[in-house]
Amino acid sequence: MSGPQAKETGSVKTVVFEVLRYDPAKDRAPRLEEYPVPVTKAMTVLDGLLWIKEHKDPTLSWRSSCRMGMCGSCGMFINGLPRLACNNQIVHLHSSRITIKPLPNFDIIRDLVPDLERMFGLHRTVKPYLIRRDRAEQNHPTGEYYQSQQELADYIQFAYCIKCGLCLSACPTVATSRSFTGPQGLTQGWRYALDTRDEGAAEREAEIFSEHGVYRCHFAGACSHVCPKGVDPALAIQLAKKDAFFGSLSLRKKRRATSVAPTVQHGADVKGIPKAPEPTVPQKG
């Protein structure tokens, strides 16, 4: 784009979006369609897709929500790498042509919409929630659990997962094995295994350390490379393997689950709190 049209839109250049189109109800096979998009500074790939939908083709489908890299909906295969469309500026891709396809290793529902059911199914297998032996306390909690800052720091990195599926689409093992739990599920399993409030290690480890669990990881590290939140699933998997190795030698650090902190109804119930000084300004009434 150049001349008066570029001035009108404020665009800095035109980039060709090569987008995979596929409607299983109509199309025999996926095809690539080209759309020239006037690109402005700070415009994201998601903005480019929205521009196409508004100006060129309203039937183009994809999934997106927050536009700020928080919800994990807009995972796509952009210029040969799984990325969030909202988290990548077009000018930062340094290319006059952007190829956008749905995430690999997932079935296509339509156009750029992947079927994430596989990921959520694998996620469920690792029981991604706190498990307590005291089922009554778990179902009807009477208070909060103790947890120190250090205990929180041990797992917080792995808790930043937004379930975008980028790690699964980048994983070479997931590409060949339908049974592999995958980096997302294994990381979440390990995240709860590290949580001191959790007592479900035995139930969860049956999946994490199964024949299709952590031991099938080739440590390609692609999952950590593409993760938009810095979760580092490869690290979680290696830590789990290390834990299992020392467990085999009976050298695993024993974890003790934290207990429920006693509920404090009023500040006055806590001993040792000094009494508030008398008001220096006369109180009304």
């Binding site: 049956a206 350390f209 199964s210 024949e211 669990g213 031991y215 190795f245 467990g247 085999s248």
Partner: peptide, 12 residues
Amino acid sequence: MRESKLWFWHIL
């Protein structure tokens, strides 16, 4: 965890 034991011997 049978697989953990096998993997342990694999490394050893």
